[in-house]
């Protein structure tokens, strides 16, 4: 039994410790906001934060995250930066199908925490690992710029 700290709460999980975090979240804990897209860290759909840094849950084993602070899309609104990003995403009508957007929001939030005012180049570099097949990239850039310029949102 491994206990995961997810969005500030302990979650015991009875899975082998080489199981990727993605499947523990989705299948064992029912937290399906974190998406499967490729299974090998090529698409970013499963992006979560581990101790504040973006990580691909599909290749992150339970053994490596036990005892660390995991944030998923379901909990990112506890972070003021995450909340700004979510608001900017809605204001810009970013999503089309929406499937990749959890991963996009997690990557964007990590970017803005690290670099509060990124230029397009910095955005492209930080977001290059997140594929959107619907092609919402232009609005993703706009939303990140908007979130960067936003006042702290009222929750």
């Amino acid at each position: 039994m491994i206990t995961l700290n997810i969005n500030g709460h302990p979650h015991p999980v009875d899975l082998p410790e080489d199981t990727p975090l993605l499947w523990a979240l989705r299948d064992a804990l029912g937290m399906t906001g974190t998406k499967y897209g490729c299974g090998v860290a090529l698409c970013g759909a499963c992006t979560v934060h581990v101790d504040g840094a973006p990580a691909r849950a599909c290749i992150t084993t339970l053994a490596t995250v036990a005892g660390k602070h995991i944030t998923t899309i379901e909990g990112v609104d506890a972070d003021p930066v995450g909340r700004k990003v979510q608001q900017a995403w809605v204001a810009n009508n970013v999503p089309q199908c929406g499937y990749c957007q959890a991963g996009q929001i997690m990557s964007a939030t990590a970017l803005l925490r690290h670099n509060p005012h990124p230029d397009d180049q910095a955005i492209d570099t930080a977001m290059s690992g997140n594929i959107c097949r619907c092609g919402t990239y232009g609005r993703i850039r706009s939303a990140i710029h908007q979130a960067a310029g936003m006042q702290e949102p009222q929750s």
């Binding site: 899309i73 995403w89 999503p95 499937y99 957007q101 959890a102």
Partner: peptide, 16 residues
């Protein structure tokens, strides 16, 4: 968009 809030909070439910 009707599903925008659900999507950005990870609540939107797909086939997967």
């Amino acid at each position: 968009l009707v599903d925008a809030q659900d999507i950005v909070h990870g609540r939107a439910s797909y086939g997967y």
